[in-house]
Computed example of a mutant assay.
Amino acid sequence: MRASVGRTGVCWDNAMAESFFGALKNELVHRTTFPTRAHAHQAIVRYIEMFYNRKRLHSGLGYKTPAEVHAEYEELQATA
């Protein structure tokens, strides 16, 4: 894996990461007070695994969840 390094002011290289972290901050981090770093870590893992990947619809994926898209991909690979 190689890090993406673009020119200053060019946002297209990391647009997907920016979108994810924006959603994480707006939907969880800024709405929650975490008593410890461990609680924050646990809440963020739960958000990603339980909500973001399995329930949250993504417009870039045709309003499907990442889990649905992955399952479709796996099914396609199994039939090929």
Rank of each mutant, 00 (worst) to 15 (best):
S4L: 07
V5T: 15
V5E: 06
V5D: 05
V5Y: 14
V5F: 12
V5P: 05
R7Y: 01
R7N: 11
R7W: 08
R7M: 07
T8A: 11
G9T: 00
G9K: 02
G9W: 09
V10R: 03
V10P: 00
V10W: 04
W12P: 02
W12G: 03
D13W: 00
D13M: 04
D13T: 09
N14C: 03
N14F: 02
N14A: 07
A15W: 05
A15D: 08
A15P: 05
M16N: 04
A17K: 02
A17R: 05
A17M: 01
E18C: 05
F21I: 04
F21E: 03
G22R: 06
G22I: 03
A23V: 04
A23I: 04
L24I: 01
L24C: 06
N26F: 02
N26T: 00
N26S: 01
E27V: 04
H30D: 00
R31E: 08
T32R: 13
P35G: 13
P35I: 13
P35E: 14
T36W: 14
T36S: 14
T36A: 11
R37C: 13
R37E: 15
R37Q: 14
A38L: 10
H39V: 08
H39I: 08
H39C: 07
A40V: 12
A40N: 12
A40Q: 13
A40T: 11
H41M: 03
H41G: 03
A43D: 05
A43F: 06
I44D: 02
V45T: 14
V45E: 10
R46G: 11
R46A: 15
Y47K: 09
I48A: 00
I48D: 02
I48F: 07
E49K: 10
F51T: 07
F51D: 09
Y52F: 05
N53F: 07
R54H: 15
R54M: 12
K55Q: 13
R56C: 09
R56V: 07
R56A: 10
S59V: 04
S59A: 04
G60E: 04
G60Y: 00
G60S: 03
L61R: 00
L61Q: 10
L61K: 01
G62V: 11
G62P: 12
G62Y: 14
K64M: 14
P66L: 11
P66R: 05
A67Y: 06
A67I: 05
E68N: 02
H70L: 15
H70F: 15
H70S: 14
Y73F: 12
Y73G: 07
Y73T: 12
E75W: 08
L76I: 13
L76K: 15
T79Y: 12
T79S: 15
A80L: 14
